[in-house]
Computed example of a mutant assay.
Amino acid sequence: MTDKPDRRQVRTKQLLYDALMGLIEEKGVDSVNVTDIANRANLNRGTFYLHYRDVPDMLQQLKDDVFESVKSRFLKLDFQEAMAHADRNEIYPPSVRIFEELARHARFLRAMFGAMGDLSYAIRFRKLMTKQIFEKVDFLPNIENPPVPRDYVIAYMTSANFGMILHWLECGMDKTPEQMTRIMMKIVNYGPLVSFGLREAPPGSMK
């Protein structure tokens, strides 16, 4: 019997969440107020205030929860392991877990990253990816006069990978996390020209 209030709270927060998402998708994040959410969820305003101070507080809690859950998956990436898997043409499981986590929060991320969402939230994710790539490639040797400066390569990788994630979410996740991992692996390893089919891939590399 003691778990009933918890289940009720979970259900109430889910109703509030669904209402918020629907309203953001309809009229944008900046136009939603407490009355809108309460009415859409068929709850009174007092119930809303049992869980959140206001709409910005609700949004911030959701944004932080989703960000931290995805970040925890990024922290498990190991570029050396990923490269070894790519050399063997094998799926790298931690990358799959990232796409699975993104899929779990797909509706929220689409709303936040969309035209009526919160640009600063997209920038927050992009900075996370940039930071992780910078930190994870420390094992690479510092090459004097590299063909392209490292920071530009990382900027390209970050923008390209983030763009792929956005496209995947916007397309309704028409590829599985495993398929997305393999697509990303191919593009990172062999570049867009090979991925487009404009250049030949190394033998056995594009299975």
Rank of each mutant, 00 (worst) to 15 (best):
V96T: 01
S31T: 10
K76F: 11
L50N: 15
G117A: 06
M116H: 13
G46A: 06
Q61C: 00
G46Y: 06
A106S: 15
F79M: 14
F74C: 04
F108N: 04
R88N: 11
F113S: 08
A111G: 01
R97I: 07
D118Y: 05
V55H: 11
V32R: 02
E81A: 14
E26R: 13
I98Q: 05
M58Q: 03
S95H: 12
N33S: 02
A86D: 10
V32D: 03
V55P: 07
R97L: 14
S31E: 12
D118R: 02
R88T: 05
Q60H: 14
Q60G: 08
R73A: 11
E90L: 13
G46T: 09
D57S: 11
R73S: 08
Q61V: 09
D30E: 15
Q60I: 01
L119S: 14
M58S: 03
I91A: 13
V96D: 01
F67A: 09
S31Q: 13
D36G: 03
P93C: 10
S95L: 14
Y92W: 06
I24C: 09
L119N: 12
Y92K: 05
K76M: 12
Q60E: 15
V55R: 11
E26G: 07
D36R: 02
V66T: 10
G114N: 00
A106C: 10
R45G: 04
V34N: 00
S120Q: 12
S72F: 07
D64Q: 13
E68L: 15
I123M: 14
D64I: 03
S95M: 15
E101R: 14
E90C: 03
H51C: 09
R97E: 15
L102D: 04
L50W: 05
G46P: 02
K27H: 05
E68M: 14
N39P: 08
S95W: 01
D30L: 08
M129P: 04
A106N: 09
R97G: 02
Q80S: 08
P56W: 10
K63N: 13
H85I: 08
A41Y: 05
G28F: 00
A115N: 05
S120L: 07
T47P: 00
A122T: 04
F113Q: 00
Q80D: 15
F108K: 02
N42F: 09
I123V: 15
A115I: 14
K127T: 13
G28N: 06
R40Y: 01
L43E: 06
Y92N: 05
I98Y: 04
N39F: 08
P56M: 07
M83Y: 13
E100K: 12
D57A: 03
D54C: 05
I98M: 08
F67L: 11
K27E: 12
Q80L: 14
F48G: 01
V96A: 06
E90S: 10
L50G: 07
G117D: 12
P56R: 02
A103D: 13
M116W: 03
I37T: 03
E81T: 08
S120F: 02
F48T: 04
